[in-house]
Design a protein around this nucleic acid. Sequence first.
DNA 1: CTGAAAGCGCTTACAG
DNA 2: CTGAAAGCGCTTACAG
Lengths: 355, 355
Amino acid sequence: VKRPTIADIAQRANVSKGAVSYALNGQPGVSAATRKRILAIAAELGWTPNSAARALSASRSDTIGLVLARPASTLGLEPFFMEFISGIQAELQLRSRGLLFQVVADHAEEVAVYRRWWSARSVDGVVVVDLDVEDARVGVLSDLGLPAVVAGGPVGAGSLTTIWTDDDAAMTNLVEYLAALGHQRIARVGGPPRMRHTRTRTEAFERATVRLGLRAAQTVDTDFSDDVGARATRALLSSPDRPTAIIFDNDVMAVAGIGVTAEMGLSVPADVSLVAWDDSVLCRLTHPPLTALNRNVSAYGAHSVRRLLEVVGGADPGSYRDATPSLVPRGTTTRIDGAITQDHPAGVRAGVIRS
Amino acid sequence: VKRPTIADIAQRANVSKGAVSYALNGQPGVSAATRKRILAIAAELGWTPNSAARALSASRSDTIGLVLARPASTLGLEPFFMEFISGIQAELQLRSRGLLFQVVADHAEEVAVYRRWWSARSVDGVVVVDLDVEDARVGVLSDLGLPAVVAGGPVGAGSLTTIWTDDDAAMTNLVEYLAALGHQRIARVGGPPRMRHTRTRTEAFERATVRLGLRAAQTVDTDFSDDVGARATRALLSSPDRPTAIIFDNDVMAVAGIGVTAEMGLSVPADVSLVAWDDSVLCRLTHPPLTALNRNVSAYGAHSVRRLLEVVGGADPGSYRDATPSLVPRGTTTRIDGAITQDHPAGVRAGVIRS
DNA sequence: CTGAAAGCGCTTACAG
DNA sequence: CTGAAAGCGCTTACAG
């Protein structure tokens, strides 16, 4: 049950293995007639390339790497990653590439994986996520020479290619929107301050609130987990000068935040408006459904892969802006006077029940 | 900047490449002294194996494959998969293996991926999930000779090795528990009927309700999505003979179900008890938190990998039972007379607020 | 215990 | 346009 090799094809076609290789790979070096004959024989024999042989001689693996450094429990809940991965997959599939995937505990382990992958030539390049303000991975990747793109940045990504979303603009728009609804006291349950995009959002948040003359905007730091997000929400809603609107840096915490309002006997959105950064099915699961900042996460993943393959192909590093997240108003935001923001059915229903 | 190969080591150590290979792989064939010397030189040179070369000559890739045939949107939300994958990863990492991962639309595409992977020898074996009642993948994998284990079954997995959970026992226990709380009308929002484990649960559900003399138990079929799950819940709760307890076949639908009760002005658990099959952070996010059937999903993934590597190593097919899911009572279940099931803080709180 | 050699299945300069 | 050959970096029988 031996699988056919190019040697078998060459023999049947009465040509050299080299000619077969050229024909199979669409390279010049064989006549149209010969190529056609070779292709027919290959199809007849059911030939498929041996990836190891190809990788060894061509010194490329046709495989891209992705490592996620988060505890599994957190990962499982964040729809972001699966969507991102599935966008990566779609693009990879189009280009007949595979994805080598690994989950690790922290950036140190992540770097170890990169070293191993690259020294074994298991991958041609990697997509890096969750950029930190001080991120050791950037320097290591540059030193290794492992082709990489950062989904994040562009600040702090060194000389690596970045694909980034304009969180500054998105945050500014969001604060302006809440201010237009009459909110004067807006608070934020932010992500880990060590992360680059958290910092970007925090700075934009503060700048916008100052510019619009709102009360001192407060950001409570979290680790993105539902527990800590709930705790932060509880603290904010217990303060004497309670905020009338809260922005959550991810959907998981926003959902936990809704739970806290119920627990405290507060109505959403009558007593407090909530907005989730990153939209997902999770945001439609709650009652009322969550107003959220939506972006096409799988397109973002696909975009990252396209750029990475360019880098693998020798392209110069660049900085590419992806689409800016846009607001999807649902049932958790309202004017400060209590009117609901829009006529989304669930939003209306919530208003009716709650007030 | 050429990376060292075993030839470099052999030259430095004044031995043959073969000897180096034996030394590096812990094989017999070299003296202890020589081995030690070779290892030292390899470390000094910073040698690491080239995976392609190793795969080509040893005809194994040291890589395991996993393909998930679900729409990305659904995937992202189900914590199950990320937990399962992370369990797989942990085990793989221990054994210096990689994971090739792919998301596709359906089983036909999944089979195509298997064929490609196996013919290219990109993987040594695969873990199969989401077994259907009639599952074409089983036959294809057997025919291909691609080593595989099914996480599911054991019925319907043909001659493939299976790692399964006793859903029959878990369902029986669950129904008995609800009956003990006084529930006479128990309904179920089930998964897709084409899936093997859905069928197992449905049969167990019906058997248990009959045996306990409960009203005709009703299962509403779904596709596991929040939308359809919500619709099913709405239908059940609108019927004149409303159930007092509902079992959901996944956590996503259970969360959506809580939303429906709020929308219909019903209290949980005072008016209706809810139970989620598969526990995850999602179940702690709701208010009140969801009573759920918990199992160690990442251990399940790790177990699957261990068995798969045995199969890859030539082990005979077998059928291995994993741990049975166990009930974690939280705030969404109560005695039919309205007493709460336990003194979980959130459960108490919900009782106070709602009733 | 050790060495020399063949071979895994491709790709890619290098000659014709 | 085509062919013969070397080589990618390992592993593994096969002799000594």
